[in-house]
Design a protein around this nucleic acid. Sequence first.
DNA 1: ATGGTAGATACTCTA
Length: 255
Amino acid sequence: MKIATWNVNSVLARLPQVVRWLEAASPDVLCMQETKCVDEKFPADEFARLGYLSESFGQTAYNGVAIISRTKLENVTRGLPDDEPGAQSRLIAANVNGIRLVNTYFPNGQAVGADKYYFKLEWIRRLKSFLDSSYQPTESVLLCGDFNIATEDRDVHNPELWRGRILFSEPEKAALNAVKEWGFVDAFRMHNHQDGQFSWWDYRAGAFRRNLGLRIDHVWVSGLLAKQSKAVVIDKEPRRWERPSDHAPVVAEFD
DNA sequence: ATGGTAGATACTCTA
């Protein structure tokens, strides 16, 4: 079973690339972030043509998450339980093949100390509460998405430049570590130990060409799934295509 | 230290 996560940076602008990638990689499930479109405009018909069922949780212009799957998606939930009405669309969860999938788009935070930064930290705390109250670590839970946090020096092209900055500040890492302590393992790091393995590169200043990136897109799994984890790869190929997303898909394979 | 790009929306915000 192949489960992928990809921040597509607008599912409508990226539709040709997403379709091309689905045909090439043929994942069973694709979790998307930053779909940037309301559910009525989500291109479910295009994905149905490729054999995928869609569940979307979008909004106008910003954020938005979706799961497409070759097999049935059950018990779909949208948002965090304590979200205010009209809250940003950042989480969609569903059961697929006995796995509880939690697809997330963490707030970016903008800059350390900004209002959005504190919103990010609080959102992560609320995610932790949601996990604590909803699931047992003995279940098969997969938390994936654009976490907008690099966790270790080897996940950052220049740790000294990024230290203390947004996406790599200590309070962000501590908040995320509390989520991990729910009972997750970073599936990518079970199989890959090198530095320089990134999932996002800024559109500007030739960052991709120079591999000036961060690993901020993650697949985390509970213990049962960790035992079934065969491989996790970051597929850089679609980042080389015309009009790419600034993120690359991360693909996890399970027995 | 600055500015570089991209997407959606509506002349600006977010990343």
